[in-house]
Write a protein that binds this DNA or RNA. Structure first.
Lengths: 217, 217
DNA sequence: GCAATAGTGTCTATTAGACAATATGGG
DNA sequence: CCCATATTGTCTAATAGACACTATTGC
């Protein structure tokens, strides 16, 4: 006998850069079903609390991993009787990007542990159908960057064009040409040079940029 | 007081070509809420019957408009407390393409009437947030065709390359260049010339094509 | 000067768009 | 032949990739 109503959840693939490599947040489940297994952070819809499913996703990120993000991108919705042992379930999947300097990685209330892992080579099999969910999120992120979008939410407050190129390369999985990359982003409206500010190392100083949108502050 | 469980539905933007113009199927609601208003065909999830939300969408198309389609593309999921007067609701939106020669346009069981309308200039305001849903579906269809995908599910069994170009133009909303279009689709694997079959009119005969996939028969 | 990286310029193969030229039927 | 459309070819501007060149710092 099936439930009359489905279980409605929201899951998030939260990406960040660690040492210039793309990583996704996994949490170890602290309850049944699939207790002990690793999964994308997610939570059950609470119609009395959540304005919409995006809020469910944000609440899940907040409670399971003590992380708050500004913007979520919806990937797709997965549904069916067999994807969760509790019965007929629906999960709307989002992805989000977080600058590496905002990675707290604290264990949340109902979670045993969190971990940042390579989204392409996650060691253990994930709980439920979360491997498929992660594949979908990664593909959508890659398509967007391949289409010319800049992953600005992944960048810290101040960054150089080389930093930005490394971020795109980490997502795409292959190196970019410097000249072509700079040509492409040359007139991006969200990209502002901070006049007179340079990053100095053992080489020619690099112009420091920030995003035009009020992502932070 | 909100419901403990949300209302879960699936809606479909079903597109076809009528006189070489893109049209979307609207149904007039026969029940409250929004009785008498026009809306995208949709239905409520039945976990005891539907394998997943895509099946919900197919069942809705079948019962509301006596139409059956093979393939649905998921567009997005809309959710919240205010989009449906019955309370907190979720709707997963799909779009589908139907060849004009399979348009029955019969009124279904619980529907007053069906109508094929211009998806860009639908006269009356649609029920619920369906205008927004339709916008999203149309944008996704256009993006896909602009990205080089061929709307083969929109074509009849046999068609000419000019027919196919007209279909793409109807979706894109602007004319294509003949030479560029033919170059682009020249090596499309799903496009097969029917050897020796030509469409004859008051001009040079046109090669007739069919799709390689087993869409029909 | 040398190392290292930033930033810019150049060359070329490919491509998309515009448009011309040719082909082939009906009348 | 003329008309209408199918089909193919050509020219060109724009573009992406590869790669080279110059610039500017620390040491």
């Amino acid at each position: 006998m099936q439930l009359l109503f489905p279980l409605v959840t929201s899951d998030v693939a939260l990406f960040t850069l660690i040492d210039q490599r793309l990583r996704v947040l996994l949490v170890q489940r602290a309850e049944e079903p699939a207790m002990g297994k690793w999964a994308l952070p997610g939570g059950i819809l609470r119609p009395d609390v959540d304005e919409n499913l995006e809020e469910t996703a944000k609440r899940a990120l907040s409670s399971k991993a003590c992380v708050s993000v500004r913007q979520l991108e919806q990937v797709a919705t997965f549904s069916g009787a067999s994807r969760d042992p509790r019965g007929w379930s629906i999960s709307t999947l989002y992805y989000a990007l977080l600058p590496s300097d905002q990675v707290p990685a604290l264990a949340g209330i109902r979670t045993e542990a969190v971990r940042w892992e390579d989204p392409e080579n996650h060691k253990q099999p994930l709980a439920f159908d979360h491997a498929q969910l992660l594949d979908n999120a990664l593909r959508q992120l890659r398509d967007k960057v391949a289409g010319g979008a800049l992953p600005l939410q992944l960048m810290p407050n101040k960054f150089t064009l080389t930093d930005l190129q490394r971020a795109c390369e980490a997502i795409a999985g292959h190196p970019y040409d410097k000249g072509a990359f700079r040509r492409q982003i040359k007139d991006h409206p969200a990209l502002l040079a901070i006049d007179g500010e340079f990053l100095r190392g053992a080489q020619r100083p690099a112009q420091v940029y920030r995003t035009a949108m009020d992502f932070r502050f």
